[in-house]
Design a binder for these strands. Sequence first.
DNA 1: ACACCTATGTCAGTGACCGACATCACTAGA
DNA 2: TCTAGTGATGTCGGTCACTGACATAGGTGT
Lengths: 188, 188
Amino acid sequence: MGRWKPDARGRLTLGALELFAERGYEQTTAAEIAERAGVTERTFFRHFPDKREVLFMGAKHLQDRVVAAITAAPASMPPIDVVGVAMESAAELLEEDRDYARQRWAVIAATPSLRERELLKMASLSAACAEALRARGVAELPAGLAAETGVTIFKLSFERWVSDEPSGTFTECIRDALAQLKGMTAGA
Amino acid sequence: MGRWKPDARGRLTLGALELFAERGYEQTTAAEIAERAGVTERTFFRHFPDKREVLFMGAKHLQDRVVAAITAAPASMPPIDVVGVAMESAAELLEEDRDYARQRWAVIAATPSLRERELLKMASLSAACAEALRARGVAELPAGLAAETGVTIFKLSFERWVSDEPSGTFTECIRDALAQLKGMTAGA
DNA sequence: ACACCTATGTCAGTGACCGACATCACTAGA
DNA sequence: TCTAGTGATGTCGGTCACTGACATAGGTGT
């Protein structure tokens, strides 16, 4: 065995979520997270650019998956439905561990500073979606519109899915929301 | 004349934008902003809960206006169009000073940390819209959908409006975007 | 054996932000 | 007119997020 216990990053990620859930994000210092993981504060900041990011390292993975789904969708499919299926593909990822998603969400929802970061990640996801749509030949404005709309549906469906009243699977929530939206914008 | 020069808050707000535009947000310390306004750093933080907020004090005003517009809209109007006219009303406010809006936007767009805050304000706007729609009797999910969609249209239209290629008035951009969206979601 | 690489520790610093207390022009009431 | 507030500010000391520079030592390849 090496000089240090392996997977310091994993221990930091796990320990951080535990501590945040126990006493809250603001009541937890980076030094305490590091201590629980058996490293120093400086090492924490070498693994994560800032304290919030310890909860968001999975975001890139999700985004890559969504972009891949957009790229892989049939060329004939209209942009709105492309983002729809892409969001369903993202939903599959989170559905693998609903309890984890819920606990993480509870922490984020309770902390404005973390909600900000979450929104930034969603904005990044939206920008990536728009880019992927443009690569399929969709024009600027419709690409932005469809991307933002897709992310909106993802966000609202996620909240319904992790809420207390059961609303079916994440995927069902997404299909529901998209159908509702189409209904709303159909008139006039 | 009183013990101190009046309108310290105004001087702080103005000075902050100037300094951010000159040397960038992160290269400007709160103490420097305070100094330019002729007060101490502590006073800066008594007027603004944090350094970012000095650029966002107008957000509440905008939100109130949007909510009022939603409340005042004819009862027969469908939710999507209600948020449409509400966003147009918000646009009027910003159209009063396009140069100011552009400069502020340039600073925000260049600074991730400020973009986060902007996103939080937009999320708050969206939540307020959803609430106002529910007060009109719109159900939970459609209210959230319409609110988020309205804010999306606002954001994208704002970016087109302040961009270099002229795209008409802010209001025109909004009408354009809403029409496009309706077209996109109409199919199937 | 040697040199290099890599993850970590150590240390000193900056800047955002907060609590507690002092100050003093201004103001309402005795 | 005196007097007890009140409110916006200054002062001081502290915590914590985050950073740069340098030291250390196991692992790896030659």
